[in-house]
Simulated scan of single mutants.
Amino acid sequence: MKYIFLILLLFVLTDLRAQEPSSKWYKGNTHAHSYWSDGDDFPEMIMDWYKTHGYDFISLSDHNTLGDEEKWKPIPKHPFRQRRFAEYLTKYGSSWVTYKTDSTGQISVKLKTLAEYRPLFEEKGRFLIIQAEEVSDGYGGKPIHMGAINVKELVKPQGGNSVAEVMQNNLDAVYEQRQRTGQPMFAHINHPNFEWAIKLEDMVQLKGDRFFEVYNGHPHVHNYGDTATMGMEELWDKLLIHYIHQGKPLLYALATDDSHNYLEHKIGLSNPGRGWIMVKAQSLTAGALIDAMERGDFYATTGVELEDVSFKKKTLAVKVKPVPGIDYTIQFWGAEKSADGVRQGGKLLKEVKGIKATYKLRKKDLYVRAKIISSQLKENPYMEGDLVTAWTQPVAKP
């Protein structure tokens, strides 16, 4: 009788596992701009670009707006802009496009809201638009920007008496809205080195910060730093050390386009398709994607695709989905506990040539993350000579 019960229990558990939705990778970008702020294209044309280029989800994150009011956009006289208006009108027709021309020949277009254009593009399980904004604030002339993803209401810039306080006040505003409305949402600190605004000493003061941009495709954000200011990867490692020491959750990193320019593609412009995230979630919904990201089940990339990333038995394992003719180097970066308690920064712990590699955390390791560098030059890169790269999220022992 006992054995019959065990067999029945095994069948039940097997059946339950079979019914559980399997996770899959979803490609998305959470930082893009349109005519609703300082982008140079219509929201519908931007949605069409991302959807036809294999993205599963996208957020337009225009500055301090959800694009839900009435706005008329004067179309600049520049030939690119005029040609784009003609393409827009041809593609969607006069029954969709609302525009007017004044006595001087100036064309102005009434921009479509998310509620209006969303039905044209969204398909359940295939393409999702997540409402977002870039909360654009500042202190002492320094721009302080933050992505607010899947917000239900506009988050107004909160201000503050220091760079750190401005960031904290805006983070708090997003998470207050999340708690009050019950809607899943998150914030990420954007391009810290844009106009050299945000420093390590500012970010270490934050509470509740879980995400930042390790890579941003805008040409003026100084991803790699300079002789006086650290780049984003060095900043990430130093922040991880501080956060672990302070008992905070691990800091996760995104790659984003920060796209503004859609009519001309070249180095020096802020184009789409430069950086994105791959999220391993059970469904293509905002809630499932955010749940996965808060678990660290995603990676940032400029084109390297991974078959799998796992962390089991204190071992981080990475497997690349290879492109024929391309070589890969998998690096494991982390930090070690030091005898005197001083933790300076991250270091290269291990390097493997090939498409798969593992790293087992040692007692002295605080954390480990993987960086995968291909031999392939990035097409239309952030900076000339950039190689196609990916970054996994850090892991640490419980």
Rank of each mutant, 00 (worst) to 15 (best):
I7K: 07
I7S: 11
T14R: 05
L16P: 00
P21E: 11
P21N: 09
S22D: 09
K27N: 00
G28F: 01
W36V: 09
D38T: 14
D38R: 06
F42G: 02
M45S: 15
W49T: 10
Y50L: 10
G54Q: 03
Y55S: 06
F57P: 01
F57A: 07
L60S: 05
S61L: 04
W72K: 09
W72D: 08
P76F: 09
K77I: 12
F80E: 10
Q82K: 14
R83W: 08
R84F: 08
T90A: 15
K100S: 15
D102V: 12
S103C: 00
T104R: 14
T113L: 01
T113V: 08
L114H: 10
L114W: 08
A115R: 14
F127V: 12
I130Q: 01
A132M: 08
A132Y: 02
E133Q: 15
E134G: 12
D137N: 08
G141V: 13
H145Q: 07
G147P: 01
A148C: 14
I149K: 01
V151C: 10
K152H: 07
E153D: 15
S162P: 05
E165P: 07
N170P: 05
N170V: 10
D172W: 07
R178E: 14
Q179Y: 02
T181I: 04
G182C: 09
Q183V: 15
A197W: 06
K199C: 04
G208Q: 05
R210A: 04
F211I: 04
V214F: 05
Y215H: 13
H218Y: 10
P219Q: 03
V221G: 01
V221F: 05
G225A: 11
M230W: 08
H242G: 00
H242T: 13
H245W: 04
K248C: 05
Y252F: 15
T256Y: 02
N261Q: 13
K266S: 12
K266P: 00
P272N: 10
G273M: 10
I277P: 01
M278N: 03
M278D: 03
V279P: 02
A286S: 13
A286M: 08
G287E: 15
L289I: 14
D291F: 05
T302R: 03
V304M: 08
V309F: 07
V309M: 02
S310V: 02
T315E: 09
V318L: 07
V318S: 04
Q331L: 14
A339W: 06
D340R: 11
V342C: 00
G345P: 01
K347L: 14
E351R: 14
V352I: 05
G354K: 11
K356E: 15
Y359P: 02
K360M: 12
K360N: 04
D365W: 07
K371A: 09
L377C: 00
Y382R: 10
E384Q: 13
W391T: 02
P398L: 13
P398C: 04
